[in-house]
Simulated scan of single mutants.
Amino acid sequence: MAGERFDLEPSFRALLLDLGISPVRVLRRAALPADLFIRRPIELSIPEYYRFWNALDAEGGTEGDRDLAVDIGRAISVELFSPPIFAALCSPNLTAAVQRLAAYKPLIGPVRLDADSTDALTITYRWPSGATPPALLATTELIFWVALVRIATREQVRPVRVTMPAPAINRTEVESYLGARLRRGPGFSIVFTAADAGRPFLTENDQMWRVFAPELRRRLADLEASSTLADRVRAALSETLPAGNASISAVTRQLAISARTLQRQLSQEGTSYQAILAGTREDLARHYLTNGDLRTSEVAFLLGYDDTNSFYRAFKTWTGTTPDAIRSTTPADA
């Protein structure tokens, strides 16, 4: 990720009200400031961003067979103004819209988009390592593209394939909205035919895009510039640790920087590689122990430890307690 904080568009408050969901209750459940929606800009860290979506799911997904992701897709409209989304609607077709949002997605969420238009248009999501995205968020991201192309073309476009690791809670309603069967796979992706991806957008507005593009580029540049080397090391470790590699060489290869330069710049930022490694391991350990059914030995492996005892000793040093004690607490307590 380019940075560690992401914009939540002010229009989200209007969307919640349209859905009949109390913004106050969502913020309270997510343990976020009550005045969040009147701040400018509204920026959330990854944990805060995920808490927001989990709280939204809890507040809005309790009415019988309602699938909130589908309701959000139906509620999306041009009136819910969001510059990056509006820029997508200004595109000539879905392929161009995906390319634009793929470039600017780091502004509005902790996720990357990969787009492949070789034969069909395949949109694949890459989420940050170490934490599973909320089910509502991931499902809504896939539904968003269907909503977008239908708004822009005024055609009932259907994807040809939709893949996710686990089926949606209300699978029938989600499949009915998409017009496609959900397939189980290792990640989140959605595929459109080349013909549908190239359908002209009736909302195309190149003049408006020229107005928005410079501001979006500036915001993206600010985001990337604000990312410190420590931020980049943390992001790299989140990818190398689950592969069992905690070495500084693995990180320097990924960041294309020498070990000496990395240590020197981290020192200038008031930290060190070992300090970042320990902090990242602790954060990931707490997440693994309080979310999911991983055994302690599996957590140790995912954090790059050769044996469970080494992990136990390190965890006791970080927290003053044991992994088992943390596991027995609730996620909120942890």
Results as ranks from 00 to 15, higher is better:
I169A: 15
V174A: 02
E204I: 06
E215A: 12
P159V: 05
F212M: 14
G185A: 08
G185K: 03
D206F: 09
V174K: 01
N170H: 15
R218V: 05
P165F: 10
R217Q: 11
S176I: 01
P165L: 05
R199T: 09
D196A: 09
F192K: 00
G187T: 13
V174G: 01
R210M: 12
R183C: 09
I190T: 01
L182T: 04
I190G: 00
G179Y: 02
P214Y: 02
L216W: 06
I151C: 06
L220E: 07
T153R: 12
L216R: 04
R184V: 13
V160P: 08
T163M: 12
A221H: 05
G187C: 07
V174L: 06
A152I: 05
A213Q: 11
P186K: 11
R171K: 14
I190N: 01
P186F: 11
T203I: 06
A221S: 08
P186T: 10
A197M: 01
T203P: 11
I151L: 15
E173K: 10
V162D: 03
A213D: 09
Y177K: 03
N170S: 11
T153A: 13
T172L: 12
R218I: 06
D206N: 11
L220K: 10
A197F: 00
W209F: 15
A221D: 08
S189H: 03
R217N: 08
P214G: 02
N205E: 08
G185V: 07
N170L: 11
E175K: 02
R184F: 06
R218M: 09
R219T: 02
L223F: 02
A221F: 05
R183K: 04
R218S: 08
E155R: 15
A197Q: 01
E204R: 14
V162A: 10
N205G: 09
A194V: 00
P165I: 04
F201M: 05
M208N: 06
I169R: 15
D222E: 13
R199I: 01
L220S: 08
L223C: 05
L202D: 07
P200G: 10
I190P: 02
F212L: 15
M208L: 15
L182R: 01
M208F: 13
F201V: 04
V211G: 02
E173R: 13
V162E: 03
G198F: 00
R154K: 14
N170W: 09
A195P: 00
T193K: 01
V211D: 10
R161W: 02
L202Q: 12
R219H: 07
P214D: 01
V191D: 05
R183M: 06
F212G: 01
T163V: 15
P214C: 02
R181D: 08
A168Y: 05
E204T: 14
N205S: 13
V211E: 13
A213I: 00
L223H: 08
F192I: 01
R218Y: 09
P214W: 03
G179I: 04
G179M: 04
P165M: 05
A166C: 09
Q207R: 15
M208G: 06
A166N: 10
G187Q: 09
L202M: 06
L202N: 08
G179P: 12
S189E: 12
G187R: 12
F188V: 01
E215Q: 11
